[in-house]
């Protein structure tokens, strides 16, 4: 993206809360959550690893923040980086253990991890049990809690923009560029032979993705005012994958586009419950079959089809 486009987008995001209705602002906040999660998931997909349990790291961030503020009386502000840190520590350990696995084995290991996280919180009353923990406090600014959509929009925007900017620019560091060489075991051997420390890079990238995911998860819990094991369960993990695939995996902006569009649509369907899952699944099937490159590939496909005559 050009500097002008980024500036225009940022300006629009800053102006938005001053002109939007509270409902529109609610949609915008949820879009920012999902867009950030999906961009973080894409960073892992980009190195050839299918994370089927990324919502587990949202849950780790969310619960860390909630336990700290509700059970231990720590400031919700402190809970935000703490959630990211805990998610990152778990990602470090888990990544070191599982990133040597490939394909379906890695995907299922991470899926199992996501299930373990939610099962753990469900199992202990101190962690809220099946009902979760209500009464999650929001951080205060100048003594006033960020109670309104307008007020809470700002920390969400800051974490989303910072997280996405880091993920975007990371692709262009020597570290991020080298991640493209780790997609298969064979190409990983070649990468090692030219001096790329594959295992270290994979773990580091996984940690970055999960720190950003977990940090946003803390704000998510504060926004909902509660956590429970269902919200950040396996459906959330598969939803994130659907966003990324519908948007298209060829570039950085595809998953973000997919997350933005589907989340905005999903919020419209929220009142009719299970329709959301049905519609997401249907859209995914249609996109996979008629537009395998995802929505981001649509302009190119249209140009190819209705191409300007020479």
């Amino acid at each position: 993206m050009t500097v002008a486009r980024v500036a225009a987008l940022l300006l629009a995001l800053i102006v938005l809360p001053f002109v939007a209705t509270p409902y529109a602002l609610h949609v915008a906040i949820v879009v920012l959550f999902n867009v950030t999660y999906t961009a973080a998931l894409y960073a892992v997909l980009r190195m050839g690893y299918l994370s089927l349990g990324h919502a587990g790291f949202i849950a780790l961030g969310a619960y860390t923040c909630v336990i700290l503020s509700v059970r231990l009386g720590v400031s919700p502000w402190l809970g935000i980086p703490a959630g990211g840190l805990v998610a990152g520590l778990f990602a470090w350990g888990l990544g070191a253990l599982t990133l040597r696995l490939r394909g379906i084995y890695f995907a299922l290991a991470i899926f199992a991890f996501g299930e373990i996280v939610t099962a753990f919180f469900r199992a202990f009353d101190w962690f809220g049990g099946p009902a979760g923990i209500p009464g999650v406090p929001r951080p205060a600014f100048l003594g006033t809690p960020l109670a309104s959509h307008f007020a809470f929009y700002w920390p969400v925007l800051v974490v989303a923009v910072l997280g996405i900017a880091i993920l975007y620019r990371l692709q262009y560091t020597r570290f991020g560029a080298a991640l493209l060489t780790l997609k298969t075991a064979e190409s990983e051997r070649l990468a090692e032979s030219v001096g790329i420390p594959a295992a270290r890079y994979k773990t580091a990238n996984f940690v970055v993705s999960c720190v950003i995911t977990g940090t946003m998860g803390t704000l998510h819990a504060q926004y909902l005012l509660f956590v429970n094991p269902q919200v950040f369960g396996s459906t959330m993990s598969t939803d994130l994958l659907i966003y990324a695939m519908v948007g298209g995996l060829a570039g950085f902006w595809g998953p973000i586009l997919g997350a933005g569009l589907l989340t905005a649509l999903g919020e419209q369907l929220f009142s009719v419950g299970y329709w959301k899952t049905l519609v997401y699944a249907a859209i995914l099937m249609v996109v996979i079959m008629v537009l395998p490159g995802g929505l981001a590939d649509l302009p190119r496909r249209l140009r190819a089809h209705f191409g300007a005559p020479r």
């Binding site: 620019r169 990371l170 262009y172 560091t173 020597r174 570290f175 991020g176 560029a177």
Partner: peptide
Amino acid sequence: RLAVLDGLLG
């Protein structure tokens, strides 16, 4: 020499 910080900040 694309250190992470150089790349991050462009």
